[in-house]
Design a binder for these strands. Structure first.
Length: 556
RNA sequence: GGCCCGAUCGACAAGCGGCUUAAGUCUUAGCCCUCUCAAGGCUACAUUCGCGGGUCCGAAUCCCGCUCGGGUCACCA
C-alpha cells in the first residue's frame, strides 16, 4: 500500500528541499522590538486603485513608525487577468505618492534578501511547502473538472446546503492514495487542495488590530492551493510568502475578513504563527443610479484610479492628507495644529480607525487641497505646478517655463502671509485665473468677450475715466497712496469717495469708488473678478496697462 | 439565501455608563467686513444618537431582537 510520501514524490519528483531548507534560506529578520514588517501586495491587473493606495499608505506608515520594513510583493498568479507592464506602473505610481518600498519588487529589479518578490518566480518555494503538506496528509490531488464542480453546486443549491468543496461533498478527499496514484499515472489532470479539518458549526475567535476580537465560523472548505497551471492561489501564497518574508502585520481591505478562517487554518496546519491582521475599511462612493453606498468601482468610477486625481491637478500631498483623514479621525485636528508639520510626526493608530467605509467626499478633498495650496510658499507651488503642467497643461507649462519670475509674481499675490489667498483647489484652476496676465491671451479674450461693465455707467463716462486713469497713472506710489489717488480720480469723474455718501444720494453720482475701480479691473483683465488691483497693475507694468486701456477705449 | 462585519448631523467623525441641554472639520444658509473676487469674522443647521425591548439610580455608550447598509460565498486577488 502506497504512503502519502509516495504520492508526494510522484507529484513533485524534483522537489528535494524541505521547509527546513527554507528556514535556512529565509532566517528571521533582525529587527528592533516592536518593529513591524508590512507589505503591499497587488496584482498587476491595471492601474493603481485609490483603495490600494490607501492600503499601501497605511502599511508604509506603520512600518515607518515602528522602524520596521515595508516591502512590495507582486501577486501575479492570475495569468488571465494580468495586464503586461502594470506591475512597473504600480511601483511608479506609488512612488509619485511618496510610497517607496524598503525592499521587494521594484519594476525592473528586486531588492532584499527574502525574494523573489514576484509570485510567479516562487514556484519552487510553493512546491516545497505543498509537498510537505501532502506528506502530512493535509493536501491532496483533486481530479474534479469544472463540470463536476458546477454539478456539485447545483445539487447543493437544490438541497439548500452550504455550497463548496468540503466534507462529504469533497469527492476527491475520499480516494485512497493508491487510487490517487493510479489516476495521476493515467494522466488525469488535477489541482492540489488543502484538506481542512474544520467544521463550519464551530466558531473561532480571531483578533483584528482594528476590529478587536472577531467571532468567525471555522473553515471547512478544501480550498485549491495549487491551480492546474502550477501557480498557487492567493490563500496559499499568502501563507507561504508572508511566513517566509517575515511579515508581522498584514494590512488589507475588509473584503478579506471572510477568508480569514482559511488563512488561520493554513497557518495552523503548517505549525506557523500567523501575522497580525488589520482589515481596513473600504472607501465607498454613492452610486449615481441607486443612491446606495458601494465600494469604489474600477469600472464605474473615475475616482477609483489614483491617476484621476493626478490628472485633475490635486497636489499629491493633499490627496495623501485626505486619505489620512479617512484612516485616522484625529489626523485632521493634528493637521490644523501643525499646518506646516511633517506627516511623519503624526502617529497612525489602529484604535482611531473607523470601522465602516468612508464615503469618498470630493468637497472635503477640495478643501484640504485648497488649504495646502494656499499655504505653500511660492517656490514649492511653482515647482509642483510645473511638474503637473508638464504632463497635463501645456499652456500653463509654457507660462512657467518661459518666464518663471513672472509666474511666481502672479501666484504670489497675497501669498506667503498670515491669511493667504485661497484661489486654487487644484493646479488645474491656475491657468484660467492667470491667463489674462499674458498679453496675447488677453488680446484674444478681449476680442471674444463682451466686457461686463456696469450698464448704468455710460460709455462716455467709462472712456473719460479710463483715459484719465492712464494719463495720471503713477505706480511709483505705494499702495495706500495709489488707492487715494484712485478715490480722487473717481471724485473728479463723478464717483463718490464714500459708500455711505453714495448710498444717501445715488442719483447724484455715477457710482462710488468701488465702481470706478471696477472699470479698471474689467478693462485690464476682461473680468469683474481678479486679485487685488494694485498687485495686478504692478505686474502688468505701466506700458502694458496703457496699451490695454487704449484697446478697450477704442472699442467703446 | 447562509455566514461575517458594521450603524451618531448632508459628508468625515468625537464620544468608551453620569462632565453631553451630543465636540470639531467639510458642505449649505444668513449676517458683518471688504475696491471685485478669494478669504476672514460671527451665526444657524441631530431635544437626539436606525427601531423596539431590557440591565441600571442613570445608556449614544452594556445586553437581546428586528431593520437597514456593506462584505463574502471561484482553479480572482
Amino acid at each position: 500500500m502506497a504512503t502519502s510520501k509516495d504520492l508526494a514524490d510522484l507529484i513533485f519528483p524534483d522537489v528535494k528541499e524541505t521547509t527546513k531548507d527554507l528556514d535556512k534560506r529565509f532566517p528571521p529578520r533582525n529587527l528592533p522590538e516592536g518593529a513591524e514588517v508590512t507589505r503591499f501586495a497587488p496584482s498587476p491587473t491595471g492601474f493603481l486603485h485609490t483603495g490600494s493606495l490607501f492600503t499601501a499608505m497605511v502599511a508604509h506608515k506603520f512600518a515607518k513608525e515602528t522602524h520596521g520594513i515595508y516591502f512590495f510583493r507582486l501577486e501575479d498568479t492570475d495569468q488571465k487577468r494580468e495586464i503586461a507592464g502594470t506591475g512597473m506602473d504600480l511601483v511608479k505610481q506609488l512612488k509619485r505618492f511618496g510610497i517607496v518600498a524598503d525592499e521587494g519588487y521594484c519594476g525592473d529589479h528586486e531588492e532584499g534578501q527574502y525574494g523573489p518578490y514576484v509570485q510567479s518566480e516562487r514556484g519552487d518555494i510553493y512546491k516545497i511547502v505543498i509537498k510537505e503538506l501532502i506528506k502530512k496528509g493535509r493536501a491532496y490531488p483533486c481530479f474534479c473538472t469544472k463540470d463536476d464542480l458546477d454539478q456539485l453546486r447545483l445539487v447543493q443549491e437544490a438541497n439548500k446546503v452550504i455550497p463548496g468543496y468540503y466534507g462529504e461533498y469533497a469527492k476527491c478527499r475520499h480516494y485512497t492514495i493508491d487510487e490517487e496514484i493510479e489516476m495521476i499515472k493515467a494522466g488525469k489532470p488535477y489541482v492540489i487542495r488543502f484538506k481542512s479539518k474544520g467544521n463550519h458549526l464551530n466558531h473561532i475567535k480571531v483578533h483584528d488590530e482594528i476590529r478587536g476580537d472577531m467571532d468567525l465560523t471555522e473553515n471547512d472548505q478544501d480550498i485549491v492551493i495549487l491551480k492546474s497551471d502550477g501557480l498557487p492561489t492567493y490563500h496559499f501564497a499568502h501563507l507561504v510568502d508572508d511566513h517566509y518574508m517575515g511579515t508581522t502585520l498584514v494590512t488589507r481591505g475588509e473584503e478579506w475578513i471572510s477568508s480569514l478562517p482559511i488563512h488561520i487554518e493554513l497557518f495552523e496546519a503548517m505549525g506557523w504563527k500567523h501575522p497580525k491582521y488589520a482589515h481596513l475599511p473600504v472607501i465607498m462612493i454613492n452610486d449615481k443610479d441607486t443612491g446606495n453606498k458601494r465600494k469604489l468601482s474600477k469600472r464605474k468610477d473615475p475616482e477609483a484610479a489614483t491617476s484621476f486625481f493626478l490628472k485633475a491637478g490635486y497636489p499629491i500631498q493633499g490627496f495623501i492628507e485626505y486619505l489620512m483623514t479617512i484612516a485616522n479621525s484625529n489626523f485632521e485636528a493634528w493637521l490644523m495644529a501643525n499646518p506646516k508639520g511633517n506627516m511623519d510626526d503624526f502617529n497612525l493608530s489602529f484604535d482611531k480607525f473607523s470601522l465602516d467605509g468612508a464615503l469618498f467626499d470630493l468637497p472635503k478633498l477640495n478643501n484640504i487641497s485648497k488649504e495646502l495650496l494656499a499655504n505653500m510658499d511660492k517656490d514649492t507651488f511653482t515647482a509642483q505646478a510645473e511638474e503637473w503642467a508638464k504632463d497635463y497643461d501645456p499652456e500653463l507649462y509654457g507660462y512657467i517655463t518661459s518666464d518663471k519670475a513672472k509666474f511666481e509674481r502672479i501666484i504670489n499675490i497675497e501669498r506667503e502671509q498670515e491669511k493667504p489667498r485661497k484661489d486654487y483647489e487644484r493646479f488645474s484652476d491656475v491657468t484660467p485665473k492667470i491667463r489674462f496676465f499674458y498679453n496675447d491671451q488677453y488680446d484674444k479674450m478681449l476680442k471674444a468677450a463682451k466686457l461686463p461693465f456696469n450698464e448704468f455707467i455710460t460709455p462716455e463716462i467709462i472712456k473719460a475715466f479710463l483715459n484719465d486713469f492712464v494719463a495720471t497713472l503713477d505706480l511709483t506710489h505705494d499702495e495706500s497712496t495709489w488707492f487715494n489717488d484712485m478715490k480722487t480720480l473717481g471724485v473728479k469723474h463723478g464717483f463718490a469717495n464714500d459708500r455711505k455718501v453714495y448710498k444717501a444720494n445715488p442719483s447724484q453720482y455715477n457710482g462710488w469708488y468701488a465702481d470706478c475701480i471696477s472699470l479698471i479691473r474689467i478693462a485690464i483683465s476682461t473680468s469683474a473678478q481678479a486679485p487685488k488691483l494694485y498687485d495686478v497693475l504692478e505686474i502688468l507694468g505701466k506700458d502694458e496697462i496703457a496699451r490695454r486701456i487704449n484697446e478697450v477705449v477704442a472699442t467703446l
